[in-house]
Design a protein around this nucleic acid. Structure first.
Length: 491
RNA sequence: GGGCCCGUAGCUCAGCUCGGUAGAGCAGGCGGCUCUUAACCGCAAGGUCAGGGGUUCGAAUCCCCUCGGGCCCGCCA
């Protein structure tokens, strides 16, 4: 065996011994198994020292700690529901079986146990084991039982070890999965249809980001991985599907840090014959629901409790320009020249290039003066036209678009517009974007513009970063704590 | 792109400031123990100190390079 450690050699010897005794160390199944929670429930009726041998139960999971006291032993068995203490006695198992088990069992082994629910004299719910079955030998030892796996690199590269060692990590990822289910339920109930649009495209479009490029042997052409879901979902509205959404991976060839990942999960939804005010109501309901659910899923996590309280109170609403002027003490921002805005952004510490459009400087000012203050759930409304090329102009406020972003704990969780649906204006804005960039991988999606010429109904659309949603609700410190396998360098 | 920090046994960590033959706990081995829960007690074992180079009589420790990682700042609408 390659790179076998002495510990692994020892454990393989146990596998060999097991086989030589005619027992299978990797059997096929363990029928009739219940979760450890069922055993706990059964134990709740018992007093310390009692056991219910009339109603045996079968559990299966991973052995964590084994505590041997001569002719009695305890072991903790973990499953997804939690854990239960196994209570092993010579009196129950017999000398030979008991001795053999203690010789050949190791922490990390996957075992099945059958026995009577019982409560130890010290009051610990247990299973008084009548028979044990090895279900899969752990040839490699698990991480340290008390401190777990601490090395942040190993926790990511070998996530299975992190999940074995950290109940918190397991609970967080379980919560993420169930929250995504909740998101789907919310959109489904509102009459939306979920679709899967292409990942491989001739030209990635719908956002300004560096794409990943790969090659199709069939076409003998380079293709790009999508950077957004928007343009294909809007094509579905052109086609008459009216309410559509997708939860899918998008790819941006950029840095990995605590809030960015080169591949991340985006929800986008488009809703025909509705505007951004309708979308606001939908989002408000969504987050109230998600926060409640998070609290159920993670009752011991303070951030989950805080979120439940925060979103129960609903969202605050502020106007982009009014709030920026209020927080910064500046005035007349919409009337100021680009040079003036650049100077203000510089003064606020931004180092974006001098030739950036004026909207970029406004965004930087907002990030600097306002975003850190947006700790409570807040909708920010009606951004300056210059910051937002793809939204429809505001029906009442000159120089603005119909847009909202929403914030919680100081960072942006989503972004919605009343969407632009004029094909000629859309084409003009794409061309402007191109001329600002001048790089061929920003070539625009001409067929999308062609689709709009056939008539895109008035609609509202939203993008929600699912990873950031998970961070905000579960209180995770980094996007790496909510993405199971973040991109790492090959070793 | 800039700055700071980390890499020692399967795992969790000391040792590095001030150079002198590598330390502990967990896990594993052997022995003991019939109510522990980070069980406990005793004995023995376990190392390419990330890799390479340099300084030195002598390097885990000082210097240089490389690899991998972390944090902060900047950039990424």
């Amino acid at each position: 065996m390659q790179d076998e450690t002495p510990l692994e050699r020892e454990r393989r010897a146990k596998v060999a011994r097991w086989r030589s005794e005619g027992r299978e160390p990797f059997p096929w199944s363990f029928p009739g198994r219940v979760s450890t929670e069922v055993v706990r429930t059964a134990c709740a009726r018992l007093r310390p020292g009692e056991s219910d041998s009339a109603h045996p139960l079968r559990v299966a999971g991973r052995l964590r700690a084994v505590r041997v006291h001569g002719r009695t032993a305890f072991a903790d068995l973990d499953d997804l529901a939690g854990s239960i203490q196994l209570f092993l006695r010579v009196d129950e198992l017999g000398e030979a079986a008991y001795g053999s088990w203690l010789a050949d069992l190791d922490p990390g082994d996957i075992v099945g146990a059958e026995g009577a629910p019982s409560v130890s004299r010290r009051g610990e719910p247990s299973l008084l084991v009548g028979s044990l079955t090895l279900l899969a030998k752990a040839v490699s030892p698990p991480p340290e039982k008390f401190h777990g796996l601490q090395d942040p690199e190993e926790r990511i590269r070998r996530r299975y070890l992190d999940l074995i060692a950290s109940p918190e990590s397991r609970a967080r990822f379980r919560a993420r999965s169930l929250l995504v289910r909740e998101v789907r339920a919310h959109f489904d109930a509102a009459g939306f249809l979920e679709f899967e649009t292409p990942v491989l495209l001739p030209v990635a479009s719908g956002a300004a980001a560096q794409p990943f490029v790969t090659h199709s042997n069939y076409l003998d052409e380079d293709v790009q991985l999508r950077i957004a879901l928007e343009l294909h979902l809007k094509r579905l509205l052109v086609g008459g599907l009216e309410r559509v959404y997708e939860i899918g991976r998008v790819f941006r060839n950029e840095d990995l840090d605590s809030t960015h990942s080169p591949e991340f999960t985006m929800l986008e939804a488009y809703w025909a014959y509705a505007d951004y005010r309708d979308m606001r109501s939908l989002v408000e309901g969504l987050y109230a629901r998600l926060a409640r659910r998070t609290e159920e899923l993670l009752p011991d996590v303070p951030a989950a409790k805080e979120a439940a309280r925060a979103f129960e109170a609903g969202f605050a609403t502020v106007d982009f320009v009014e709030e920026l002027e209020r927080q910064s003490g500046l005035s007349g921002l919409l009337e100021r020249s680009r040079e003036d805005l650049r100077a203000l952004a510089r003064a606020a510490g931004s180092t974006v290039p001098d030739d950036s459009p004026s909207g970029v400087f406004l965004d930087k000012l907002f990030e600097h003066y306002v975003e850190p203050t947006l700790t409570a759930p807040t909708f920010v409304l009606d951004h300056p036209m210059a910051t937002t090329p793809l939204a429809k102009r505001h029906r009442d406020k000159p120089g603005r678009v119909e847009r909202f972003e929403f914030f919680y704990r100081g960072f942006e969780l989503g972004n919605a517009y009343t969407e632009l649906n004029d094909p000629d204006e859309q084409e003009r804005r794409f061309r402007e974007q191109l001329s600002q960039r001048g790089e061929d991988h920003y070539a625009y999606d001409a067929d999308f513009v062609r689709a709009l010429r056939y008539g895109l109904p008035p609609n509202t659309g939203i993008g929600i970063g699912i990873d950031r949603m998970a961070i905000a609700l579960t209180g995770a410190a980094s996007i790496k704590d909510v993405i199971l396998f973040p991109l790492v360098r090959a070793k």
